[in-house]
Design a protein around this nucleic acid. Structure first.
Lengths: 177, 177
DNA sequence: GCCTTTATGTAGCGAGTGCTACAAACGACT
DNA sequence: AGTCGTTTGTAGCACTCGCTACATAAAGGC
């Protein structure tokens, strides 16, 4: 991608993190990128393609954040690994990103193709990532990763709905073998 | 609520199930209810209050659907109970409702007050409902219900993201004690 | 019969939407 | 110097948004 385009995307990601992506519109996005709606369409072709570019960038960013945050402290076992993932994904810093994740899911549920693809891509990458980062030797790391992801996403849902306490209790009780 | 108002809400719920609630606007809603945007504002005061009324009605409907679907077949143990809940919440019939649930979560994550309250209310009711409908004697039914809800919501998320297969695998593996 | 309250239609306001037509500036190349 | 492709600004189109002003009915109490 052309450097100028990439810089625009970076700037717009900031705006999207603040205001959400579901009802982002060209003129505010353009202002955030220091340009005009006219130029956004010129560079990206359509709003849809613009959003796609922003979503990709957001995915990259999330991957990096996860890597950094997770590497900061090595979890000794599955339980603390799950707890750490729960803490990371539901930290205030990542709140804006998780809000966008919910918007992606909502749009995906509505069948909007760009979002469906993005959603599946993110889920697949997460499973692979968790599977590769499990702290303990595991007879079936993929299945464990899938289970952990379900628990993470479920507690995230409860957190978004204002029941983070319940989410904590459940994550704390899981994998108590 | 005035009967006429209630009838309007019922009709609009239909429209919302088809088109989602996040970007529902007055004129199409009015058409679905056989009236005009003018009258919707007249009866409900503002769009916000209209949406609130629709959300409440949707919550009632979901509760009833759950009751009926669940009562149709008695689950013998926790595992099959979880499987049944997973099947119900992710059935094609309830897809439109779950789509709206995602939209509620997204709006709640954005801090829109009406949605935050609705989200928490739904979660609380679900936990209480599951806790009361557990098939087996349980030392801590509330905790079990919370765990089941997290699993259900997590698998719902994966399902919305196009990974229903993974969701199934995880639900099938849970509570395998 | 009058008068107030409730209900409804018509028209419109100001703002915002994605996107486009047109033209001008600009740089690189011949 | 002239030409051509790229980039950008200005203006605007046709539309939707939530909501309101105004006028008109209809209905019920005195």
């Amino acid at each position: 991608m052309v450097p100028a385009k990439q810089a625009m995307v970076q700037a717009m990601v900031g705006h999207v993190l603040q205001h959400g992506i579901a009802d982002a519109s060209l003129r505010p996005l353009a202002q955030a990128a220091g340009t005009s709606d006219r130029m956004l369409i010129y560079h990206f072709g359509s709003k849809q393609q613009l959003i796609a570019a922003i979503l990709i960038e957001l995915g990259e960013m999330f991957g990096q954040v996860l890597e950094v945050q997770f590497a900061a402290r090595r979890a000794p076992d599955r339980r603390s690994c799950l707890a750490q993932l729960g803490r990371i994904t539901r930290s205030p810093d990542l709140r804006p990103m998780m809000r966008i994740w919910m918007q992606i899911l909502a749009a995906s549920a509505a069948g909007e193709t760009a979002y469906v693809e993005t959603g599946r891509l993110i889920v697949d990458r997460l499973i692979a990532w968790i599977s590769a980062h499990l702290p303990e030797a595991d007879p079936d790391p993929d299945q464990t990763a899938r289970t952990m992801l379900v628990l993470i996403e479920g507690s995230l849902v409860l957190d978004m709905a204002g029941r983070g306490d319940v989410a904590d209790a459940v994550l704390d009780g899981a994998f108590r073998s």
